[in-house]
Amino acid sequence: MAVLTIRDALNEALREEILRDENVFVMGEEVAEYDGAYKVTRGLWKEFGDKRVVDTPITELGFAAVGVGAAMAGLRPVIEFMTWNFSILASDQIINHAAKMLYMSGGQFKVPIVFRGPNGSAFQVSSQHSQALEAFYANFPGLKVVMPSTAADAKGLLKSSIRDDNPVIFLEQERMYGLKGEVPEGDDFIIPLGLADIKREGTDCTIVARSMTVPLALQAAEKIQAEFDVSVEVVDPRTIKPLDIDTIVGSVQKTNRLVIAEESHEFASVGAEITYQVMDRAFDHLDAPIKRVSTAETPMPYAKNLEAAALPSVEKIIAAVKDVCYL
């Protein structure tokens, strides 16, 4: 297996899918000549040219719409948002158009499109550039929502997303682009959407984490193991919608305790949804109330210490695990 950064794993996925299907093209701000604002598309324009890798004006609503129309007419656009914060300008096209088209056309017009880019906080980029939008997009029927946390998942899930016939919201994390991991070789490596992955097996407490909170949860699990001899299982749903609730419930039935770690704000979050579904499916298995670790209910501050205080951390996750384990 090759060891790749998440950035390069995504780049490989794009390259392989462009090669595999002539209808796949990548479009967005600075994706071509600039090589991508975060270098996810590095080298693709030089290799494939203007037709397959398309720089756009700064016109998020406009190029999202071009993607939706092109997908309706048979292409497979991969639309990059430089960050998901900018997708809010394009949300009319994502929510009112892409998500609705199949249904309101009575099943006639599918929209096989991937919207992708970094989601959540970065490094002190403050209020308008730090939002985690998975709960927002997961609330709308007609969209799939994907959040990889490793290089292998990033590659396998992006390839599946591009081949999927539905609009897919593919949420990466800027802080994680440089994280390295083993990635299976071969251009037929894909990971089906809708399957959770148990990132660490354990018996005493489950942490459901996604994207940036997965490495935090794994570190927390190691420390808790060492300090308290508590065995933590880390479940990464990988796809938020459709959600693999069976794997999460199965883990809770084994450990009887659940902590949810997420980068989004807690009000009406994906964690809130998982909490409900676990309560509905496994209430009698819970030995303690479910705890969540989320981002503070405030716009993201700039100051380094305040930003750290707002975000989930290894320490906050350890504290939550201790709470549910009555330690």
């Binding site: 093209f25 037709k51 609503l61 406009g62 999202a64 719409a65 071009v66 993607g67 939706v68 129309g69 092109a70 997908a71 309706m72 007419a73 048979g74 292409l75 009319d92 096209q93 009112n96 158009h97 088209m101 309101m104 056309s105 017009f109």
Partner: peptide
């Protein structure tokens, strides 16, 4: 290709249809 209810939304989608025709 529809039949769209958000004022102006279909102008962008129609632009994408043209993009596909050219592509």
């Amino acid at each position: 290709y529809g039949g769209h209810g958000i004022v102006g939304g279909q102008i962008g989608v129609g632009t994408g249809l043209g993009y596909a025709a050219k592509y």
